[in-house]
Design a protein around this nucleic acid. Structure first.
Lengths: 341, 341
DNA sequence: CTGTTAGCGCATTCAA
DNA sequence: TTGAATGCGCTAACAG
């Protein structure tokens, strides 16, 4: 293995000091043309590149931002990351992605690792387990240590930092309202357990829409999916009701897809007998049959905004910068799984 | 902003030397119990964590591995990354993910950045543009500089490094053979442009299967998709043939899904009139209607193997370690889009 | 025009 | 038992 070329080695080669080399490579006017030329030529020939670690240590910054997401196998997060990459790169920053796998412990480990000088700032979408445990001290530590933090999508209200979120309340409302408008009378919602904030907000939006249309809320139509158990089995209960639903709102596309699959298997026609609406515009929605109407979440935009906020904080680190919360609106994308108006 | 606590600060606090603190925190026997105790307590209270940059610089290693993938919005890559994370973490390594966006330039930039001391080794799946340009000097430089490199899925034969690949040839064969077995007479293939190796290999497998069954190869049934153009339009040509296909093999699940969508729109019954088979077992395959039969690619396993190979190389860096090539076999997953045997 | 020195944060060898 | 010195690779202020 050839070890990398360093200033020191170049210096030895020409029998000059390290700083001479450093300056020569920066094309400093302090150095004679002659020396500069030969040093530059030599460096180029050997593909000299300053060692990032040394630079980072010296400058006390790394020009990279860390991202911690629960799962990468989710289309939404994948879109967010693309958005993050785009604007980070444009601003000369690199991106380091870590996964918490929705585990509190892994989230803490990743944060610790990133916080120790590895990145200039961190973007997080909180792990489910962290939301469940409500143990947020690692975020507080981070902020206390002066490392800029931006949360997106799954955020913690109590933590004071910039945030980017989907208008989940509104999204839930939009979805439900649309189902009502096309004539659904019994609208079920497939949502997450209570501790998942975004699920809760979408549920709130659902309730608001019902109330707004004077439709009584029926507890039986709320199904909180436990992902550790068989999802189909859980959906079954909905269709076993005395009065089964004629409309279903799934708070993510997987739930909606499962519901649609089950309904069709039971002989329901979608959307004639039952309309189904999802959340997040992923590939499943586009390729399922019938294609799935859904509330689009604009993951790309969220990622972009998150970086913008973070870079602001990184630059204004000393002055007292005001934390901001950006809300990204949702859109209804109507496809085949819901009846036409 | 409170700046992070360092050995220096602790040293000043107790009016001892930095090295004393360093040793105390390592519970060295050289330091008196008394001093150790108070220093450790202090460090704990202030959440002291050694600065990674400094450690890395000193140790000349970072305990992180870099991954460069073309796109993150692909289910396959997402699975690979999960596999990589799993075994990397288990071995105390962190993972840094970069995207080349299938661009040669971004691939080079990312590699340069990772190579400058940021990571101990790199795992790559080559960008399309790089395959097209056949410009591989950045890989050679990397190897020349002694940085371990492992390629997966989209690999370059000429570059000498460890590799993990899907048995694309066999996968293509399996898929085609199955279509033949269930009675398809005119089997079309939806593949990539020539320069994409994996597409080519799957096409080879397709040809082999035809030959093996004494079915003449028909150029008209080979459609090389240009992703920059409208995909549906391109698929249309296949169905406008005098003798349209009764079986379609798509070299990835998107192509297969598009084909199925189009066929159904034209009134074909899948699988009665036409059988469709994809490659890569992603979400689309599972949730489309009918569900898509496919050649499973085991992305997770590939990721795991890639890290294993890389870690080997990192450890045996000085000795002359033999590069290995691991082939991950494919499996046929039969669902509803192909006729039963 | 060139070199010396100091420092970023840490670990380690050697000296006291 | 403690500390001073050295080095990882680099830059920048300051001397010469």
């Amino acid at each position: 293995m050839k070890s990398k070329i360093t200033l020191k080695k170049i210096a030895k080669e020409f029998d000059v000091s390290i700083s001479t080399v450093s300056k020569a490579l920066k094309d400093s006017h302090e150095i004679s043309e002659e020396v500069k030329e030969k040093i530059q030529a030599f460096a180029k020939y050997y593909h000299y590149k300053p060692n990032s670690l040394a630079l980072n240590l010296r400058n006390q910054k790394t020009k990279t931002i860390g991202v911690i997401i629960p799962q990468i196998v989710h289309h939404f997060f994948t879109k967010v990351i693309s958005g993050i990459e785009q604007v980070a790169n444009k601003n000369g920053y690199n991106v380091m992605i870590c996964m918490s796998m929705d585990s509190y412990e892994k989230e803490v480990l990743n944060m610790d690792m990133l916080a120790n000088g590895v990145v200039d700032g961190i973007i997080v979408s909180v792990a489910k387990e962290t939301e469940e445990k409500e143990n947020y001290s690692h975020f507080r530590d981070l902020i206390y240590n002066g490392i800029p933090l931006v949360m997106f999508d799954r955020v913690i209200d109590e933590i004071k930092c910039s945030k980017v979120l989907t208008n989940d309340l509104d999204g839930g409302y939009l979805a439900t309202k649309h189902l009502i408008n096309i004539g659904c009378k019994r609208i079920a919602i497939l949502t997450t357990p209570d501790f998942v904030t975004v699920g809760n907000l979408r549920l709130e939006g659902y309730k608001n829409a019902l109330e707004n249309s004077l439709i009584p809320f029926d507890e039986d139509l709320v199904l909180k999916i436990d992902e550790d158990k068989n999802i189909e089995e859980q959906i079954k209960t909905l269709f076993s009701l005395k009065e089964p639903p004629d409309g279903i709102f799934g708070v993510n596309e997987i739930y909606a897809a499962y519901a649609m699959k089950y309904a069709r298997k039971q002989g329901y026609d979608v959307p004639e007998d039952i309309s189904i609406l999802g959340f997040t515009d992923g590939l499943i929605s586009q390729f399922s049959t019938p294609t799935l109407s859904t509330v689009a979440q604009h993951g790309n935009t969220m990622g972009q905004k998150a970086v913008e906020l973070l870079l602001n904080e990184i630059e204004y680190q000393d002055t007292d910068y005001q934390h901001q919360t950006k809300v990204v609106e949702t859109d209804l994308i109507l496809r085949e799984s819901t009846k036409k108006l």
